[in-house]
Design a protein around this nucleic acid. Structure first.
Lengths: 203, 203
DNA sequence: CAAATTATATACCGCGCGTTATGGAAAGCG
DNA sequence: CGCTTTCCATAACGCGCGGTATATAATTTG
């Protein structure tokens, strides 16, 4: 993307790496949610002062959207790979195990950044909630189509409701992130996944 | 509990009904979560002033715990009835349909009060989170025992992991409340429940 | 070297938060 | 009636919030 690593611009060069700072901001938002992350939390974690943050990222809200972009491209990349699994069961397994990997990883915040930031949101954070919901529903639509394809290909029984199954899979994923945030161990979440897959419809 | 409805005490009598005020406070906490509900939100909805609130309920945190008591006794009463259903499938169905009834009811806040208040909680609300988690795990334990009883009674296959199944049922419930809070319609949630029950293991 | 430009550092702004001090109003008790 | 007790109403407290004005440091351009 960036064609030149040097600084061909005039003026004093900035003393921090924007990408590194954004990664730190993501970590804070992920751990505390949009409302829970204060500007002081963010600037301290990013190692910069408030004016630098505002100059580089606009304001708190636009910083969050950029952090959410990074979160989706890095942490939720596995959902794209999931859709290309050969069978519906494999798709579901990829989704669930990937969800556990991302949201119950050691050394990382426990739970889902989007869920945390969108559930209990203050009035001024309604646009945050709307953004998260919009992203979620767009990825849900892709999963519905994948399951309808599976029905045509015969690896999902014809009597199964693809939309209902998608909502169910997302519900399980959301439950996984909720329970991860509540302190569930990885082993407990894996039992949850195993049980889910044991009930998965076979063709 | 209260043996006398009259006011046998000295001093100026209070001019509001404590139970009514608590019910209003519950509504606010349910809609906005613990952190999102400000004292001004609460006092305005309860129709009392801040000193009255502090005299009657202590502080914001103890008010929340009392509201959560009311929430559990009124809104989550169905979980007790659910455990007495004759089969594991009926228990699950009672849980899920009851969850939809409570958390996607018209004219009521959408979503689960405990989940909203415990997920993205500020540092000072850690005790709130701990309380919600404690209540949740105690009711989860009862469900595990109910499913183990079902295995002994033969209406649940022996190869099913009762703890995993309990975690799964709670995950679906949590997903239902998350999606209700995100604006899912009642019809969508009922499809989710129908699909869940279609996959439920039969003996 | 000066001029122009951009980033940094410090201090500050107005605001809403949870909480409380203060003074007066309404009751029972002598 | 005073006296005590309890509650209500107003106003204020200290604090941290998101956001910014001002001044200074570090560069490129002439």
């Amino acid at each position: 993307m960036e064609s030149e690593t040097a600084t061909p611009v005039k003026g004093r060069p900035r003393e921090f790496c924007v990408d590194k700072a954004l990664a730190e901001a993501l970590h804070v938002f992920w751990a505390k949610g949009y409302d829970g992350a204060s500007m002081t939390d963010l600037t301290e974690a990013m190692g910069i002062t408030k004016p630098s943050l505002y100059a580089a990222f606009g304001n708190k809200e636009s910083l969050f959207h950029k952090a959410l972009d990074l979160y989706e491209s890095e942490k939720l990349e596995y959902t794209r790979a999931a859709l290309q699994q050969p069978t519906a069961r494999r798709v579901a397994e990829y989704y669930l195990r990937g969800g556990v990997d991302v949201h119950a990883a050691e050394g990382k915040p426990q739970g889902c950044m989007g869920l945390i930031s969108s559930l209990a949101c203050s009035p001024e954070a309604e646009s945050i909630k709307a953004d998260v919901i919009r992203r979620r529903s767009s990825s849900q639509r892709a999963l519905v189509e994948r399951f309808e394809q599976a029905k045509r290909e015969g690896d999902l029984p014809a009597h199964i409701d693809a939309e209902g199954l998608t909502s169910l899979l997302y519900a399980i994923l959301q439950g996984i992130t909720v329970q991860a945030g509540a302190g569930a161990t990885r082993a407990e979440l894996e039992r949850l996944v195993d049980t889910s897959l044991a009930l998965w419809p076979s063709a």
